[in-house]
Simulated scan of single mutants.
Amino acid sequence: MNTRPALQLALLLATGAHAASDDAALVRQGRALYQGHKAFAAGIDATRLRLPPDMLACARCHGAIGEGGREGGQPVPPLRAAAVYQPRGGLPAWRADDDVLRAITQCVGRDGRPLGPLMPRFALQPDEQAALLAYLRHLGTEADAPPGVGADRIRLGSVVPLTGPAAPSGQVLAAGLRAGLAEANARGGVHGRQLELDVADARAGVRAALNAWRERPPFALIGGLWNE
C-alpha cells in the first residue's frame, strides 16, 4: 500500500495546525529577523562579524517570500512552508523543529550532509529560535501575504458610482480599469499573479464602501470617481 500521499497530507495538516497556533507577536518578531528589520543578537558563529541587520537577513539569499534563487552563482533553496515541510528534490521533509534549527545553527541539511559554503551558522538566542520557527511556518502562505494577495491572485479595489445620475461615467471608468487589468493579465500578470478588480458603488459614500471591504480588504485602490 502506498502511504506517501497520506503521510504528505498529515505533514501539511500538522504544519497548518501548528501555524494557526503560533502567537502573532512571535510571528512578527520572526518576520523582522528574517527580513532583516531586526538584528540577530549574536550575529553568526562563522565570522562573529557585527554587520547591519539586513546583511545577515535570511531574505537576502532565500528571498522576501522564501522563493529561493541564486547567490554567488550557487542555488539557494526556497524556504516557503510548503518547501520546508514537504519532501523536495528527492530529499525527505524536515521531521521536527530541531532539524530546521540544526540547519540554521550548524549548517546540517535534511539529509544529514553539510549545507553549501555560503550558508552562515547563526547563533540564535532561545527567543529568536522560537520566533524564526514560527515565521517559517507562515512564510510564503496566504497568512503571510499582504491583504488582497493570494497564491495566484491580486485583488484591487475601486470606488465609482454604479447607480444614480453619475452611473454612466462610473461604469465607463470601471470598464476601462478592467480592460487595463485584462491586458496586464494577458502578459502574465504581476509576479505570476492575475489581477482582479472589486468595484464598490460610490453612491453610498466612500466610507461605506471601505467599510464593506473591512473583512476582505483589497491590496490597493486604483482609479475611482466620487464626490465626498
Rank of each mutant, 00 (worst) to 15 (best):
Q194I: 03
L91C: 00
M55T: 11
R80G: 02
R88C: 10
G68M: 09
A167N: 00
K38T: 09
H37N: 14
G69C: 02
L221F: 14
S21D: 07
G157Q: 03
P77M: 14
A143C: 07
V149A: 00
D22K: 14
R203L: 10
A209S: 00
A64K: 09
P217M: 06
L210Q: 08
A151F: 14
A96P: 03
G140P: 04
R216N: 13
C58E: 03
R137S: 02
V27Y: 07
D23G: 06
L156S: 02
P5T: 00
P78M: 10
A93Y: 07
Q86A: 08
L56S: 06
P75T: 08
G192C: 08
I44D: 14
V160F: 02
R110G: 13
A17N: 13
D22P: 07
H37W: 13
P165I: 06
E215L: 10
L197W: 09
T141G: 09
D198E: 13
A6W: 15
D111E: 07
G148I: 05
L12Y: 15
G16N: 11
Q74L: 12
H62F: 02
L177G: 04
L9W: 11
R48G: 01
R48V: 01
V190E: 01
M119V: 14
Q8F: 15
A6H: 14
D97S: 00
A81M: 07
G89E: 10
A209G: 03
P87I: 03
Q194M: 14
A103M: 05
G188Q: 01
G205L: 02
S21N: 01
P165E: 09
D23R: 03
A130C: 00
A81E: 05
D45S: 08
R4L: 12
P146Q: 13
L12W: 15
D45F: 12
G73H: 05
L51T: 05
P92R: 00
A209C: 00
A10P: 02
H191F: 15
N2D: 12
A204G: 01
F122D: 04
L79F: 15
G224T: 05
R70A: 09
L195R: 06
C61Q: 07
E228Y: 00
N211E: 11
P77D: 08
L210E: 14
G30W: 09
R203H: 12
A46W: 05
L7Q: 08
P5Y: 11
A200N: 07
A46I: 00
P147E: 06
L132W: 11
A179G: 12
Q74H: 11
P218W: 02
A39S: 07
A10W: 12
A179M: 15
G112A: 08
M119Q: 02
L91K: 07
R113L: 10
P117Q: 03
E228P: 02
R31Q: 13
A42F: 14
G192E: 00
S158R: 05
R110D: 09
D45K: 13
N211D: 15
I154A: 03
A184W: 13
Q171W: 06
A81I: 06
H138T: 05
L49A: 13
P5H: 07
L13S: 01
V206A: 01
A130V: 02
P126M: 13
R214H: 11
G192W: 11
P87K: 00
L118M: 13
Y135Q: 01
V199N: 03
L139V: 06
A14R: 15
G68L: 06
R207M: 08
A32L: 08
T141K: 04
V108F: 10
E128R: 10
V160R: 08
G30E: 03
D152L: 05
R121S: 09
M1T: 13
